[in-house]
Amino acid sequence: MGDAAGRGGADAVAARSYVLGRLALVTARFDEAADLLDAAWHHREPGLAADVAEQLAWLHLLTGDPAGAARWARRALDEPIQSAIARPRDVLALVSPASADPEEGGLAAAVAWLGRGEPERACDVLRHVVTEAGGPG
């Protein structure tokens, strides 16, 4: 068993909820993922908070809440990263400054523009995100 599970307490609850929430998210069980990830955030420990917030960002993006996705992505970036895994570029892309709306950014803004029936603006945002990430411009 891992360190958190061996110690017990709130950190074990957070770790278990995070892992189960992440599994629920990737299998499109969004309500279950929301409950589990919310529990992980509530019982969070410093080394896990950034990862929980990142998963909550993806949950909000996948369920059609781009503003919520951007909010959680910002929280993920604000939390210290204490794991051995570096923050992936995709979460940075969620809150890229490539947006006409200051409350949204990056991929979250692209989803918002699509939802507003403006695919051209969504494509412009995505082009900017890819260019910032070092992809083809």
Rank of each mutant, 00 (worst) to 15 (best):
M1P: 02
M1D: 06
G2L: 10
D3Y: 06
D3W: 08
A5T: 06
R7S: 03
G8A: 08
A10R: 05
A10I: 01
A12P: 01
V13D: 07
V13G: 00
V13E: 06
A14F: 00
A14Q: 00
A14T: 02
R16Y: 00
R16V: 01
Y18T: 00
Y18L: 05
Y18Q: 03
V19F: 03
L20K: 09
L23I: 12
V26M: 10
V26N: 13
T27M: 02
A28H: 14
R29G: 08
R29E: 15
R29P: 02
F30N: 12
F30S: 12
F30E: 11
D31P: 09
D31A: 15
A34I: 04
L36C: 10
D38T: 15
D38Y: 04
D38A: 12
A39Y: 00
A40F: 05
A40L: 04
E45N: 01
E45V: 15
E45C: 01
G47D: 12
G47F: 07
L48G: 01
L48D: 04
L48F: 00
D51V: 04
A53R: 09
A53I: 02
E54N: 10
Q55A: 13
Q55F: 01
L56A: 13
L56P: 08
A57L: 07
H60V: 04
H60E: 14
L61P: 07
D65R: 15
D65T: 13
A69L: 12
A70W: 09
W72S: 03
A73L: 05
A73H: 11
R74P: 08
R74Q: 13
A76W: 01
A76K: 04
A76P: 11
A76E: 02
D78W: 00
D78Q: 06
E79D: 03
E79I: 00
P88C: 03
P88N: 09
R89I: 07
R89L: 09
R89M: 06
R89C: 04
D90R: 14
S96L: 07
S99E: 13
P102F: 07
E103I: 00
E104S: 14
E104M: 15
L107E: 13
A108F: 06
A108I: 04
A108L: 03
A108N: 05
A109E: 15
A110Q: 02
A110C: 01
A112P: 10
A112V: 11
A112I: 05
L114W: 05
L114P: 00
L114V: 07
G115M: 06
G115Q: 14
G117C: 06
G117W: 04
G117P: 01
E118G: 00
E118I: 05
E118D: 15
E120K: 08
R121A: 14
C123F: 10
D124V: 02
V125G: 11
L126I: 14
L126M: 08
V130R: 13
T131K: 14
T131R: 15
E132W: 02
A133Q: 13
G134P: 03
G134N: 12
G135D: 04
